[in-house]
Design a binder for these strands. Sequence first.
DNA 1: CCGTCATTGCACCCATCGGTTCAGTGTCGT
DNA 2: ACGACACTGAACCGATGGGTGCAATGACGG
Lengths: 115, 115
Amino acid sequence: MVNHMVQHDTLDRIYSALADSTRRDILTRLGEGPASIGELAEPHGMTLTGMTKHVRVLEDAGLVRTEKVGRFRQCRLGEERLDDAMAWISFYQRLWERRLDGLEAYFTLQKGTDQ
Amino acid sequence: MVNHMVQHDTLDRIYSALADSTRRDILTRLGEGPASIGELAEPHGMTLTGMTKHVRVLEDAGLVRTEKVGRFRQCRLGEERLDDAMAWISFYQRLWERRLDGLEAYFTLQKGTDQ
DNA sequence: CCGTCATTGCACCCATCGGTTCAGTGTCGT
DNA sequence: ACGACACTGAACCGATGGGTGCAATGACGG
């Protein structure tokens, strides 16, 4: 029953890291270039402590890499490229399509050719 | 940059629904066809109450649809096709690649060290 | 050296989560 | 009608999550 999954730990961490809009914002922001904790915290009106925690969650998931540079902690996108997360979703989409092709084709939305 | 996000609420629910290996298993199982709460609970050695909760989480995320049929609750894959979740991840991947192509290449050119 | 600044560690608060038990509720088979 | 069956509602539990404030720590700037 648990066969197709990569490491549950990894997926757990990645998906729960993504399950927060603040953290998704952080990733988007870091897509534009490195930032310090303070720079990340400011637009959210959040304490530095709070932001440090969010960054830590992203870092544990491999989505962000950080490095202390002087007084600042430089945060940037990490090595984890969400391939695992993407692969799992793709797998699920295949399941869904198989269901759709079967007896339920009449049912709901028609698809827009993704994947 | 935030225009790629649908409603945070939706993504929050989808990603946090996926952030649990039991629930990912449920989706995989339902990919093979509808199942009752009991059938879903059994392979996990979980109480019916516990499984009902998991199914509820998936249903709230739109990933599962259920219907009471006699004494049974028939659970099947829902209408939410993870397109939103997929789109967000793709968007992030694009950011990552841009970082790689732009900033990192420049960085490598300048420093010659891995970064 | 001293003050300021960016961050962090710690303790704490409250809400949610994953899971249980127990007592119903409604449905089926006979 | 009766009992077994499949589930559900409520109350509860320990752990985790998102957030705060406060007191270090460590790096600058002068």
